[in-house]
Amino acid sequence: MTKWEKCVAFHGHECGGLTIGYKAAIYAEKLLNITFSEDEDVVCISENDACGVDAIQVLLGCSVGKGNLLFHMRGKQAFSFYNRKTGKSVRLVLKEKPEGMSREESFAYYQNTEPKDMFEVKETTIKLPEEARIFDSYKCECCGEMTGANWIRIAGGKKICLDCYKTYDRFQV
């Protein structure tokens, strides 16, 4: 199975969006000398949550669960890639495509365009995030569900999860 076929199998179908992420990932591999990340050596911060993110997960091993796929939601087809081993990084921003293309024409355009012609290569604007932390867990003394320490609040001397915690707000409308 080719890399492209693996991406399609994971995503569920071929589309222009998947192609954008696919081309961004293979371009980042070349620019940063990276491969599939077994741990957190490669980090991607995506500025969207669209189809292309699936290709980045498949090709580069970036995932939310490992903590090396993060989202900085800006609605842009832009991806910042970081190589923790070398300290190098790059931000790839999709260039405008020719106007007036149908969905099928757009897919063909992205499939046949070289990554260097698809993306502007820029410096990253977001600092490399720290590696993922593992938090202690506490039982919410209201609902009884285990919750990471970073998301626990103390109210009335009790540990309360964010869902059960009532925010103090004196300016209700």
Results as ranks from 00 to 15, higher is better:
residue 1 M to G: 14
residue 15 C to G: 15
residue 167 T to Q: 12
residue 14 E to R: 11
residue 90 V to R: 00
residue 23 K to W: 12
residue 85 K to W: 06
residue 86 T to S: 15
residue 96 E to S: 15
residue 4 W to K: 07
residue 91 R to M: 11
residue 46 S to Y: 06
residue 112 N to L: 11
residue 102 S to I: 12
residue 6 K to P: 00
residue 95 K to C: 09
residue 73 M to W: 01
residue 2 T to W: 00
residue 93 V to W: 03
residue 32 L to D: 06
residue 11 H to R: 04
residue 144 G to T: 08
residue 39 D to M: 08
residue 80 S to V: 03
residue 52 G to M: 08
residue 151 W to Q: 04
residue 33 N to T: 13
residue 48 N to R: 03
residue 145 E to L: 09
residue 107 F to R: 14
residue 165 Y to N: 10
residue 76 K to R: 13
residue 170 R to V: 08
residue 20 I to F: 08
residue 66 K to V: 02
residue 166 K to D: 05
residue 141 E to R: 05
residue 56 I to H: 05
residue 66 K to W: 06
residue 53 V to A: 04
residue 28 A to E: 02
residue 64 V to R: 10
residue 37 S to Q: 00
residue 56 I to F: 10
residue 115 P to A: 13
residue 112 N to S: 14
residue 148 G to C: 06
residue 141 E to Q: 15
residue 19 T to A: 13
residue 171 F to N: 07
residue 78 A to N: 02
residue 69 L to Y: 04
residue 57 Q to Y: 07
residue 89 S to P: 06
residue 111 Q to C: 13
residue 155 A to K: 14
residue 139 K to P: 00
residue 158 K to H: 11
residue 98 P to L: 09
residue 24 A to M: 02
residue 3 K to A: 14
residue 96 E to C: 09
residue 63 S to F: 06
residue 62 C to W: 07
residue 30 K to C: 01
residue 48 N to V: 05
residue 77 Q to D: 13
residue 47 E to V: 09
residue 139 K to M: 12
residue 117 D to P: 05
residue 114 E to R: 13
residue 79 F to A: 04
residue 75 G to E: 02
residue 60 L to V: 04
residue 107 F to W: 12
